[in-house]
């Protein structure tokens, strides 16, 4: 077995919860006066995504302790995450050991595309869930041999909406926008861009053919995400990849 592909199947969290919630008997209706007498109001400040955030914090601590740079790659379906990762593994990955966790609703096609003898890859199939959560990442990272790995790419489910709300414990959130999607995507789907550390404008080799205005796209990205580093690249022509690899190198933990 030269490649480390493992397929993890997750049940959608909503369904899981519905099945495991203990059945509670419906209480008999209480008489108004009695209710008023014993009612109490409790002030709480419980954050409701706390569970995911706790697991994400654990992931982050784990990755940092092992000096693994974890990146969460997010984009619409078809923006070029897998193509970029394939080439990154073939070039950057030859000298810096990388691993990949990739999420899709179904199939292990992406994991098979990404599998390399020098790079462990795990596929997460989410079934119906539209994003990865920190628990899925924790389990799939556990399933991989991360010995010597310095970069872990987490390729999220293609979706520009829901992944914004789920911290996976990544060091850098990388949002991809392809030239086929139009310049206004950052304005139309702002939450995900707002949380990006890096924005990659992909498929710039076909920008002219599409009449895509790169300057306008860059300005839209800057308005929503002034904090994000913008790199324009094409995984096919290779333009801009040196800058992408330099960014990865700059963020590596000192070994």
């Amino acid at each position: 077995m030269p490649f480390g592909i493992k397929v993890l199947r997750f049940v959608a969290p909503g369904i899981l919860r519905a099945n495991t919630l203990p059945a509670v008997e419906q209480p008999a209706p209480l008489v108004g006066a009695n209710v008023a007498a014993v009612r109490e109001t409790v002030d709480l400040r419980v954050p409701l995504l706390a569970k995911n955030d706790q697991i994400a914090a654990g992931n982050r601590a784990n990755f940092r302790a092992r000096k693994i740079l974890a990146l969460n790659l997010v984009s619409s379906p078809g923006a070029g995450k897998t193509t970029l990762l394939s080439r990154t593994l073939d070039e950057f990955g030859l000298t810096t050991k990388c691993a990949v966790v990739v999420g899709d609703l179904e199939t292990d096609n992406d994991a098979r595309r990404l599998a390399r003898p020098h790079a462990p890859v795990a596929q997460i199939t989410t079934g119906t869930a539209c994003h990865l959560d920190a628990g899925m990442v924790a389990k799939s990272a556990d399933s991989l041999d991360l010995t010597g790995v310095r970069v872990l790419f987490i390729e999220n489910v293609g979706n520009l909406v829901c992944p914004a709300e789920f911290d996976l414990g990544e060091e850098l959130r990388v949002v991809l926008l392809s030239t086929t999607e139009g310049e206004e995507k950052p304005l139309k789907y702002p939450p995900i861009f707002k949380t990006a550390h890096v924005v990659l404008l992909t498929k710039i080799d076909v920008a002219d053919a599409l009449g895509f205005d790169r300057a306008l796209a860059a300005e839209n990205i800057r308005r929503i995400a002034p904090q994000a580093k913008l790199i324009q690249l094409s995984a096919r022509s290779g333009e801009g990849l040196a800058e992408w690899y330099a960014l990865l190198s700059a963020h590596l933990f000192k070994s």
């Binding site: 419980v46 995400a225 002034p226």
Partner: peptide, 27 residues
């Protein structure tokens, strides 16, 4: 999501409040 300072026009990404999803009270 375009956080532009009304005084100087500076664009910011530093959100101090507004992403809360909290269970505040139960009666």
């Amino acid at each position: 999501y375009v956080f532009s300072c009304p005084t100087c026009g500076q664009l910011s990404c530093d959100l101090r409040q507004g992403r809360e999803l909290e269970l505040a009270q139960i009666e």
